[in-house]
Design a protein around this nucleic acid. Structure first.
Lengths: 130, 130
DNA sequence: CAAACAGTTGAGCAACCGTTCAACTGTTTA
DNA sequence: TAAACAGTTGAACGGTTGCTCAACTGTTTG
């Protein structure tokens, strides 16, 4: 019974959004059924959001070969320490960089090889579309 | 001469951003030298920006197995046709989807296998961090 | 302990972004 | 040709985001 109620809601929602109740209803139903959970797609897009900023991207490239302290990062990238620190927090939260204190300095490094893999594929994709 | 001028600018810029002239100047110089061109990092982050929105991510998942018209997409995802259309334009511009008109409908499909590769790695990454 | 330095943090601001809304193009059908 | 439908587009609004600034924590050094 909650089943049929759900079906009814789907119908209503479908009708609400476009006049396509008569179009390809089975297709719509199938796509809905196969779609991953909304949490999954949200987590995925949140993950990619991290790469979707050129400052963060440049930080990741800078950390690709060696660990760097915030100070050197900011000097190398031409950003203030504050701006770098904000972005590093973002990257840390998303488990993309790791930090280590050494005296007054805090050194950051890449935490994950997936970063390199993902960027590699992106480079490949971009090199094909020119 | 323009060489030494450039060096001088670097010194100044470094000093401007943090008090680290005395810290690891060679490291900073090396990182600067190895950094990819600013255009490259900008293109990369622009590319990832496309994946950094849950609506676009859901559209990509919906298109993973079959082509769909805008109407069915909007019904399946619970978005207005207008919102879907705006996002499809974004995806089209970035060469991630292709479109084909058939009568009144315009069918969209994934344009590139890199999409699947990238999402796969992201899923892997996320499944490791729990 | 005080001064200096490395880094973090929160508030605030400006730019950006995704959605809605309404008007539009283009195709089909009567 | 007029009506109906699929899809696109641009303006506008509201939320998000990245940076700046200033105040803060924590470490080292004199």
């Amino acid at each position: 019974m909650s089943q049929s109620k759900h079906e009814k809601e789907l119908e209503q929602e479908r009708a609400m959004l476009c006049g396509c109740e008569h179009e390809h209803p089975e297709t719509v139903r199938e796509v809905r059924a196969e779609m991953p959970d909304e949490n999954v797609t949200a987590d995925l897009s949140d993950f990619f959001k991290v790469f979707g900023d050129s400052s963060r991207m440049r930080i990741l490239f800078a950390l690709d070969r060696r660990e760097l302290c915030v100070c050197d990062l900011s000097a190398a990238l031409g950003m203030t320490k504050s701006a770098v620190s904000h972005q590093l927090r973002f990257l840390r939260t998303n488990h993309l960089v790791a930090s280590r204190r050494s005296g007054k300095n805090i050194f950051y490094s890449l935490a994950d090889d997936h970063v390199r893999d993902i960027i590699e594929i992106a480079v490949e994709h971009l090199s094909e579309e020119d």
